[in-house]
Design a protein around this nucleic acid. Structure first.
Length: 422
RNA sequence: GGACAGGUGGCCGAGUGGUUGAAGGCACCGGUCUCGAAAACCGGCGUACCGGUGAACCCGGUACCGUGAGUUCGAAUCUCACCCUGUCCGCCA
């Protein structure tokens, strides 16, 4: 969410940001409405505060007269009048602020200057690592997995429905091994605090990170308790310090979690195998940073995610998303895509973003730059480090052997207890 | 799920419906003292919003004592609902 001051002092920055996202035409009305409502809001606040000041003075005077045993009926009547006026003005103010909030929530974050303008055709590959394996004679991961009994999509369908996976045997152990490998490395080598978050969160938490109210249909909700299944560990972990002033920045957290997504409206897209499911596993990196450092922190965080792919020996590329392809709350995003020769595609296994203070404002997370100084909003960042199903797909395809077996990447062998699947 | 108790500033902790943004203490910051430190003493010490020429400082105003409604000329203080925490009982991986 943007600061109200943006509407008053930096509308041109806002407009330029939306233009670079290619969304100025659709968002100009919301911006104009916001500017207008912000003005109305101030007028109303002035009018109410003025009357409240009068009311307070009046109430003091009543107290004084009562103590002196004098008559105060006239003042009491005056107070009643002021009260009515205040109630009326506040009623208007509530309506204006609600409308203002709605307008503000429609406006996405302003992309950083280094983000290219335009839609996804302007995304830039900024880094490449490894040599993509030729697709010749390479089977897609679902065929390999089925042949090796790593997961059972048919029975998952029976038990839960389409879009769910039942990992079995070494497949199940592979998931657990990857989680441990990622967590251990981020904790031991990259300095993240390991956390294990709740998967069910309340409405306030979902709202603070922006999943609600706009995307309520994308989340799984519980019946009777107003709790939601998290779509990513970003939600509980970013909310860890909601409404608090943290002692020191940067802070860094790594969390494994199940991620639950209804994927309403994405039927038929990437549905083969395990590329898109309603429930998947992911290790997530979350950082709170001082504003001046968030740029370099995004580089560091992205490198932490890339290191996982390098250790696994999976060829990948880093893509700087153009403004129009950058997520709603993000100011700058890198996608990491690993090569899957079996399906012949680059698969998004991580998305690393710098949100600036856009998330922190809504979640109200601040830090004190120095003792005695005023608190400032932190900058929040997060990225997958990594998402499991697609990483598994890439491993199965990249490392498959002519005899149908799959060689296990060196780093996973201590966790998995074997050097070969099959 | 049931029964009690309780939620006040960074922390602890007072608070009779009317100079209470809120006593007192701790922590913190500045100063005096000291070769230096400690102690002692003096002073300062919340957040947000509105306005005073859109910066800083400063000044005025408003709001905030778990959250939301209500009663009242006036609410931290009274009423209701909800949330959370603690203790005990029940249940349970």
């Amino acid at each position: 969410m943007h600061d109200l001051r943006m509407l008053r002092e930096q509308v041109d920055v806002l407009r330029d940001g939306m233009r670079r996202r290619g969304a100025l035409d659709t968002l100009a009305p919301a911006i104009d409405r916001g500017v207008e409502l912000e003005r109305e809001r101030r007028t109303l606040i002035q009018a109410t505060d003025e009357r409240k000041a009068l009311r307070n003075a009046n109430a003091q005077e009543v107290a004084k007269r009562k103590r002196a045993k004098e008559d105060a009926d006239e003042l009491i009547a005056r107070g009643r009048e002021l009260g009515d006026e205040i109630a009326k003005l506040e009623h208007e103010l509530v309506a204006v602020e609600a409308a203002l909030q709605r307008a503000l929530l429609e406006i996405p974050n302003v992309p950083l200057p280094e983000v290219p303008a335009g839609g996804e055709e302007h995304n830039v590959i900024v880094r490449e690592w490894g040599t993509p394996r030729s697709s010749d004679g390479v089977k897609p991961h679902w065929e390999i997995a089925s042949a090796l009994g790593l997961f059972d999509l048919e029975r998952a369908g029976k038990v839960s429905g389409s879009g769910f996976v039942f990992y079995r045997g070494l497949g199940a152990r592979l998931v657990r091994s990857l989680v441990n490998f990622f967590m251990d490395t981020h904790r031991d080598e990259h300095g993240y605090e390991e956390v294990w978050p709740p998967l069910l969160v309340n409405r306030a938490t979902m709202t603070a990170t922006g999943q609600l109210p706009k995307f309520e249909d994308d989340a799984y909700a519980t019946r009777g308790d107003d709790l939601f299944l998290i779509p990513t560990a970003e939600v509980p972990v970013t909310n860890l310090y909601r409404d608090e002033i943290v002692d020191a920045v940067p802070m860094a957290f790594v969390a494994y979690s199940k991620c639950f997504r209804r994927e309403a409206g994405s039927a038929g897209k990437d549905t083969r195998g395990i590329l898109r499911s309603h429930e998947f596993d992911k290790v997530e990196l979350v950082r709170y940073a001082a504003p001046e450092t968030s740029g370099e922190q995004l580089e560091a965080l992205t490198r932490h995610a890339e290191t996982m792919l390098e250790r696994l020996g999976l060829p990948y590329r880093r893509k700087l998303l153009a403004a129009g392809d950058t997520g709603f709350s993000s100011a700058m995003t890198y996608d990491l895509e690993a090569w899957a020769p079996g399906v012949g595609a680059w698969l998004e296994v991580s998305s690393c973003s710098n949100f600036g203070d856009y998330q922190a404002r809504r979640a109200n997370i601040r830090y004190r730059p120095a003792k005695g100084e005023k608190p400032r909003l932190v900058h929040t960042l997060n990225g997958s480090g990594l998402a499991l199903p697609r990483t598994i797909a890439c491993i199965l395809e990249h490392y498959q052997n002519p005899d149908g077996t799959v060689t296990v990447p060196e780093v996973l062998r201590p966790y998995l207890g074997t050097g070969v699947l099959g």
